[in-house]
């Protein structure tokens, strides 16, 4: 039972991060119908920026309570600029090109970012500085620490905020209009390019936050961390129904839970035949199963009968 609870906690924490990253994928997909393959690298850049800023600020004896938000803001600003730049350089010129062309530029951007990061930050793992006394709390035999609590709370707050922006503001309405029908939105006076740029920047800001969260949770950051994380988050977005914001959140949380429960119990389930190294397989198996039985994802609209 303790194991079960522990895995639930781990899954929720990991899932919150997946959800934030998945939102970035899903927003861009919803509006452009494009898999922003470079998004995982934006998360990595966010983590690296935040970590560098944090280390520097702590080095200047800035109080952690000030250093943390400052470095987060810096990372968000950096990632927003990056997201904006990626869209302008690699996607916008190809908006009417064959469908796979932007996929290749996205892969190109991904490779470039990864290697730039390696040049700047090196190949080694960077440790997350010890900021707060990361107090563990015991709940029914399971442990959750302060950082994990902060991650979950922040993720919930940010997602609520995003939903408010999308559903309650003029900007959100413009975003939804562009997602529904670009041409019609343009006729109604929506500045499509602006909306798309803002979408990329919003997604990148979320990515920066997620990057900081992951590195805080694991205490590490690395130039290669964006790849698998991005892949998982994209999987989560598809699982929930890509293009659907609630779907991305649900998909992220579910994927986090499935992975941690899977990793925790696969040994028992298979009589020790398969071990926790199959954690990643679990995520993909579930994904395939969901798509086979519900091709548009959990919350995606059913398109099957719409010609």
């Amino acid at each position: 039972m303790e194991i079960f609870l522990q895995q639930i906690i781990n899954g929720l924490v990991q899932g919150s991060v997946y959800a934030l990253v998945a939102l970035g994928y899903t927003m861009v997909y919803g509006i452009l119908g494009l898999i922003n393959f470079a998004h995982g690298e934006v998360v990595m850049v966010g983590a690296m920026l935040a970590l560098s800023a944090l280390t520097a600020l702590i080095g200047w004896d800035v109080s952690p309570l000030l250093a943390l938000p400052l470095s987060l803001i810096l990372a968000m600003a950096g990632c927003m600029a990056l997201g904006y730049g990626i869209e302008r350089v690699a996607y916008r010129p190809l908006r009417h090109a064959p469908r796979l062309a932007p996929l290749i530029t996205a892969i190109g951007v991904s490779i470039v970012l990864q290697n730039l990061a390696m040049m700047i930050w090196g190949r080694e793992y960077h440790a997350f500085p010890q900021l707060i006394n990361n107090q563990p709390h015991h709940i029914g035999g399971a442990i959750i620490n302060d950082i994990q609590i902060i991650i979950v709370i922040m993720a919930v707050m940010i997602m609520t905020g995003l939903m408010l922006v999308v559903h309650r503001t003029r900007l959100g309405r413009a975003m939804r209009a562009v997602a529904e029908n670009q041409h019609a939105a343009q006729l109604m006076g929506v500045d499509i390019n602006r909306v798309i740029s803002i979408t990329f920047m919003l997604g990148s800001a979320l990515a920066a936050i997620a990057g900081l969260m992951v590195s805080a949770n694991y205490g590490l950051a690395h130039y290669y961390m964006g790849f698998m994380l991005g892949l998982k988050a994209f999987t989560a977005a598809v699982l929930g129904g890509i293009g659907n914001l609630r779907g991305a959140m649900l998909g992220g949380l579910l994927l986090g839970l499935i992975e941690s429960l899977g990793a925790g119990y696969i040994g028992d389930l298979t009589g020790g035949f398969l071990g926790s190294q199959y954690q990643d397989v679990f995520a993909f198996f579930v994904l395939i199963a969901v798509l086979v039985f519900r091709p548009s994802g959990l919350l995606g609209e059913r398109l099957a009968e719409r010609a």
């Binding site: 690699a90 932007p102 290749i104 530029t105 991904s110 470039v112 730039l116």
Partner: peptide, 15 residues
């Protein structure tokens, strides 16, 4: 990393 950087750039530019 320089090699891969150039490679990635080439992909973008050609596309």
């Amino acid at each position: 990393s320089l090699r891969m950087l150039l490679f990635g750039t080439a992909l973008i530019v050609v596309m």
